[in-house]
């Protein structure tokens, strides 16, 4: 199974694995980090991973729709970042801290 073709023939699978790796990095960030802003960044990372697989599919299936979806994802990611950062700023104003450990008051 593991032949040199794996390294010299770049195909759709390679891009998908790359995208999966990036996605897992982002997910690990969301689970492991406690700084609210780093959490937002990890979410951006996951969205980007999805973008990579969209573009790869668009390229290898010869369809433009994938690239359109990337546009939409980018716009929504930018919107999400804007609101998230505004929230982070107001949280920082209140608690002087953006570590999620310090605002667990909502925990039941």
């Amino acid at each position: 199974m593991l032949s040199t073709d794996l390294f010299t023939q770049i195909g759709l699978g390679h891009y998908l694995v790359l995208s999966a790796l990036l996605f897992c990095c982002g997910m690990a960030g969301v689970l492991l980090r406690r700084n609210a802003i780093v959490l937002l960044m990890s979410i951006e990372l996951m969205l980007n991973a999805v973008n990579v697989s969209f573009v790869a599919f668009s390229r290898y299936l010869g369809q433009q729709e994938g690239q359109i979806m990337v546009f939409f994802v980018m716009t929504i990611a930018a919107a999400e970042a804007a609101v998230g950062l505004a929230l982070a700023v107001s949280i920082f104003k209140r608690f002087r801290e953006v570590n999620i450990r310090y605002f667990e008051h909502l925990k039941g």
Binding site: A82, V83, A86, L87, S90, F92, R94
Partner: peptide, 18 residues
């Protein structure tokens, strides 16, 4: 985007935060 722009400004400008 318009809604988000307005919302983000409103959130960040609110005096006592959320």
């Amino acid at each position: 985007l318009l809604v988000v722009a307005v919302g983000a400004v409103a959130l960040a400008r609110a005096k006592g935060g959320t």
